[in-house]
Design a protein around this nucleic acid. Structure first.
Lengths: 139, 139
DNA sequence: GTGTTTTTTGTAATGATTACAAAATTACTA
DNA sequence: TAGTAATTTTGTAATCATTACAAAAAACAC
């Protein structure tokens, strides 16, 4: 996605498309690696002059509140961010620590009987060992 | 569950049933309120003489490693603990911050096609507003 | 009981996140 | 286009949860 499209997308969701916001969203969308704040900072510090980690926190919090990003809480000591807000699950490998998406359709997720409850977000994640790391262990 | 049963349960899972461990597990099992470390500490400090918060961290980490408790990561800034290790989902209310269980059968959870992956844990949680808080908002 | 191992404790260290006020940027208007 | 007001970013300091670590206490073995 180009910067123009990202700007329009942010604007449509009530976010003024300022330079750093666009770059951060652009990073999330192109990388799709469910980064932590530190990963984003480490990568973008070279690209954006005078970027502060506080800004990344500010912008990501804004993104989550505005619904253009999800905060993933898989491990207690790290929050990861995902610009894909459609229904999907996450797998976290205990060995390489990477997080990957897996497709699930909305209808596949069990709909518990929660009478009178308002459901805002559904999260489904799996922990284990990915195939790449599993092969390395065997070998 | 009585202390005797808890002791036997811990022992069966390779955990020496020391006094404080039994009391902490007993608390988890009887309350079923998915407490944070602070909640446990606040409640048990009156009951157990000279209890340290570090001990609670130690014991809970041991419980999770031994498989007699789950660490729930629903919100990025808090870890909650659950002595119910069977398959079930969690609902967190944004208003009252409470976490409640909902029943789901293992077979209901979608099984994504993750060829060669080893699955250790499956987590499904929902965020929203519980019926009690929803009623209060309406009124 | 005495000595050894394990557990608990308490303080200090760490690491992620937020608060806050100053500086910089952006938007608005004449 | 310059000046002004509002918003955003920055950087440091504060906060909060969690872990490290060594000493004290408890549990265990003989």
């Amino acid at each position: 996605m180009e910067q123009q499209q990202i700007s329009a997308y942010l604007l449509k969701n009530g976010i003024r498309p300022l330079q750093k916001r666009v770059k951060i969203m652009s990073y999330l969308v192109s990388k799709r690696n469910h980064p932590t704040v530190d990963m984003i900072y480490g990568d973008l510090i070279h690209e954006i002059n005078g970027l502060s980690k506080t800004t990344i926190y500010n912008v990501l919090n804004l993104f989550v509140q505005s619904g253009v990003a999800l905060a993933l809480n898989i491990e207690g000591n790290e929050v990861r961010y995902d610009a894909d807000t459609s229904t999907h699950g996450h797998f976290k490998c205990k060995i390489c620590t990477g997080v990957i998406d897996f497709r699930i359709r909305q209808e596949e997720l069990p709909r518990p009987t929660l009478e009178g409850f308002r459901i805002d977000e559904q999260h489904y994640y799996i922990k284990g060992v990915c195939s790449f790391c599993a092969n390395k262990i065997e070998a």
